[in-house]
Simulated scan of single mutants.
Amino acid sequence: MKKTGLCTQWEARIKDYRASGLTAAKWCAENEVTTRQLWYWLRKFRDSKESSVRPPQWVEVNVDKPQENTESPLLVKVGAAVIEIRPGYNPTLLSDVVRTLQALC
C-alpha cells in the first residue's frame, strides 16, 4: 500500500476510534490493530497538524526613548542626611522633610 493510502486509511481509523467511545485497547482488539500502531498514528497526525500551523509573524514595535533629564539634581544636606531634588519636586514635602531632619539633629 502506498504511503498516502496508508495515511488515508489511518485517518479514517482514528476518526472511527475517536467516535467509538471505546478504550484504545478495546478498539484495537475489535479492529485487529495493535495499540502501539494506534498511538503511533495518533502522535503522527498530531505532530503533522502542529507543523502545519501557520508560522509566527513578527510585529513591529516602536519604543519611545525615555526623556533624558539634562539638568543636574540639587543636593540639600541637613546634618548627615542628603536630599536629592529634581525638577518637579513638591516644595511643601521638601519643607516638611527638612524641618523634621533639623529637629532630629
Results as ranks from 00 to 15, higher is better:
residue 44 K to L: 11
residue 37 Q to H: 09
residue 63 V to E: 14
residue 16 D to T: 07
residue 46 R to P: 00
residue 64 D to H: 11
residue 74 L to F: 10
residue 26 K to W: 02
residue 23 T to P: 05
residue 100 T to Q: 14
residue 85 I to H: 00
residue 43 R to L: 06
residue 32 E to L: 04
residue 28 C to W: 05
residue 15 K to C: 03
residue 53 V to W: 02
residue 77 K to H: 14
residue 67 Q to P: 05
residue 41 W to P: 03
residue 84 E to I: 01
residue 38 L to A: 04
residue 24 A to N: 03
residue 17 Y to C: 05
residue 65 K to H: 09
residue 48 S to C: 02
residue 53 V to H: 06
residue 53 V to D: 08
residue 16 D to H: 10
residue 104 L to I: 13
residue 96 D to M: 11
residue 33 V to R: 12
residue 30 E to G: 06
residue 21 G to P: 07
residue 18 R to E: 14
residue 63 V to W: 12
residue 84 E to L: 01
residue 73 P to E: 03
residue 73 P to S: 03
residue 8 T to G: 09
residue 66 P to A: 10
residue 68 E to M: 10
residue 38 L to C: 05
residue 32 E to Y: 07
residue 39 W to R: 13
residue 40 Y to D: 07
residue 67 Q to E: 15
residue 2 K to D: 15
residue 27 W to P: 01
residue 80 A to W: 01
residue 89 Y to S: 06
residue 13 R to P: 00
residue 50 E to A: 12
residue 41 W to N: 05
residue 61 V to F: 10
residue 78 V to Q: 14
residue 16 D to S: 10
residue 66 P to V: 13
residue 63 V to R: 11
residue 57 Q to L: 12
residue 105 C to Q: 15
residue 23 T to S: 15
residue 60 E to M: 08
residue 104 L to S: 14
residue 61 V to Y: 12
residue 44 K to A: 07
residue 70 T to Y: 14
residue 99 R to I: 07
residue 74 L to S: 03
residue 15 K to T: 14
residue 54 R to G: 02
residue 20 S to G: 02
residue 57 Q to S: 14
residue 29 A to W: 01
